[in-house]
C-alpha cells in the first residue's frame, strides 16, 4: 500500500527519482512489522522530500532576494521616515512623512520627474517602433540572417559606460562628430549638453541604440511563433505584405508588445547610467539639471548632498510610481486581451 502511495505521490517517477513499486518480501511476523515501520518511515521521509525539497531548491533565490531586495527595500522605507546623514547612517531622527511631503513643493523633483517622462517617451516610442520594423524585416528569409541577428544584439552587450562615453564624445560641442557632420551640410554647431531638448535627445539616442536590438529579438521570437498558415490564408485572401503585418502579425504580437512596453517603462523610470555618464559622471544632469532623471536626483541627494533620508523618500516615490504604472498596464492588458478575444 505504501508503495502505491509513494508511486502516486511521485510526480517524477519517470525520472527515476522515486522508488518504484517493490515486491514485499516474505518475512516472519515481527520482521514484517519492522519492515512495515521502516517503509512507513521511508514513505514519510519521502513525502517530506516531495513536499519541501522544491522550497529548499528555490530558497537560494529567495534568500538572496531577502538580503539584497527585500531588506534594502524595507530599510529604505524606514530611512525615508527619518532625517539621516550619509556620514552617520545609524543616527536617525524621526520626521514622519516630512521627506515625502516636501517633495510636493520640490521643484527639482518635479523637474526630474518631467525629464524622466520626456526622456522615457523620446527613447521608448522610437525604440519599440524601430524594433518592430526591424524584427519584421529580419523575419523574412534572407542570406546571413544570423549575422544580422547577432549584430542587433551587439549594442545590448556593450557596457553602458563605453556606450555613453562614445556618445558623449560624438555629441561634443566643439570637437564632436555629430556637429562636424551637421557643419558639412551647413547647420550651425549645437551645444548638445547645455540645451534642454538637445541633451534629452542625446541621452535618448544612447538608450535607443542600446535597447533596440534587444527588443527586436524579442519581437522576432514572437513573430516566428505565429503560425504560417495564418499568413498563407491571408495571402490567399489577397492581403498585401503591409496588410499581413497589420492584421496578422500585430494582433498576434499584442502580449509581447505589452511586455516590452512594461519592461521599457520600468527601465525608463529608473534611467541612471546613460544621463550620468553623458554628463561626465556628475549626478546633476547638466548645469541646469536639464537632463537630470529621478534616478540621478536620488543619487545626487543621497551621495553628493549626503541626505539619505530624503534620497530614500525619492526612491520610495519612484517605487510607488512604478506600482501605479504597473497597475495601469495590468488593467490595460486585461482590456487588450478581452477586446482581442472578441476580435478572434
Amino acid at each position: 500500500m505504501t508503495t502505491h502511495h509513494a508511486k502516486a505521490a511521485s510526480p517524477a517517477s519517470a525520472g527515476g527519482a522515486a522508488p518504484g513499486p517493490r515486491v514485499p518480501r516474505q518475512r516472519s511476523a515481527s520482521g514484517a512489522a519492522v519492515e512495515a515501520r521502516r517503509l512507513e518511515r521511508r514513505s514519510r521521509r519521502y513525502r517530506w522530500d516531495v513536499r519541501f525539497s522544491p522550497y529548499a531548491f528555490i530558497s537560494p533565490f529567495f534568500l538572496f532576494f531577502a538580503a539584497f531586495g527585500l531588506f534594502p527595500l524595507l530599510y529604505t522605507g524606514w530611512a525615508s521616515l527619518h532625517q539621516v546623514s550619509l556620514s552617520h547612517p545609524n543616527d536617525m531622527e524621526w520626521v514622519g512623512l516630512g521627506n515625502f511631503t516636501r517633495l510636493w513643493n520640490d521643484e527639482f523633483f518635479w523637474d526630474a520627474l518631467r525629464n524622466t517622462f520626456t526622456i522615457g517617451v523620446l527613447s521608448t516610442v522610437p525604440q519599440l517602433a524601430m524594433a518592430l520594423g526591424l524584427a519584421h524585416l529580419l523575419n523574412y528569409r534572407m542570406r546571413g540572417s544570423m549575422l544580422f541577428r547577432v549584430a542587433m544584439l551587439a549594442p545590448y552587450a556593450t557596457s553602458v559606460a563605453a556606450a555613453a562615453m562614445v556618445f558623449s564624445m560624438l555629441y561634443g560641442r566643439d570637437y564632436g562628430a555629430v556637429n562636424w557632420a551637421l557643419g558639412l551640410v551647413g547647420i550651425d554647431a549645437v551645444d548638445w549638453q547645455s540645451g534642454q531638448w538637445s541633451s534629452q535627445f542625446a541621452v535618448s539616442s544612447i538608450v535607443i541604440w542600446r535597447w533596440t536590438g534587444y527588443n527586436t529579438l524579442i519581437y522576432l521570437a514572437a513573430m516566428q511563433a505565429v503560425p504560417g498558415d495564418l499568413y498563407e490564408s491571408a495571402s490567399l485572401d489577397g492581403a498585401s505584405r503591409w496588410q499581413q503585418f497589420r492584421h496578422v502579425t500585430l494582433p498576434s504580437l499584442r502580449p509581447t508588445i505589452l511586455f516590452t512596453v512594461v519592461v521599457s517603462t520600468i527601465g525608463a523610470t529608473q534611467l541612471f547610467g546613460e544621463p550620468m555618464l553623458f554628463g561626465g559622471g556628475d549626478a546633476n544632469g547638466g548645469a541646469g539639471g536639464q537632463f537630470q532623471t529621478l534616478g540621478l536626483y536620488l543619487y545626487e541627494m543621497g551621495w553628493f548632498n549626503r541626505h539619505l533620508g530624503r534620497a530614500s523618500a525619492i526612491a520610495w516615490t519612484m517605487f510607488l510610481l512604478l506600482i501605479v504604472i504597473g497597475l495601469v498596464y495590468w488593467a490595460l492588458s486585461r482590456w487588450v486581451s478581452r477586446s482581442g478575444g472578441e476580435e478572434g
Binding site: 562615453m165 564624445m169 560641442r173 566643439d174 570637437y175
Partner: peptide
C-alpha cells in the same frame, strides 16, 4: 571658451589649443 573644467571637451580643447 565656454568650457566646463575636467570634461572630455575641455581635454580636447587643450589638444586643439582653443
Amino acid at each position: 571658451d565656454g568650457q566646463q573644467q575636467f570634461t572630455e571637451e575641455w581635454d580636447r580643447a587643450f589638444a586643439n589649443g582653443a
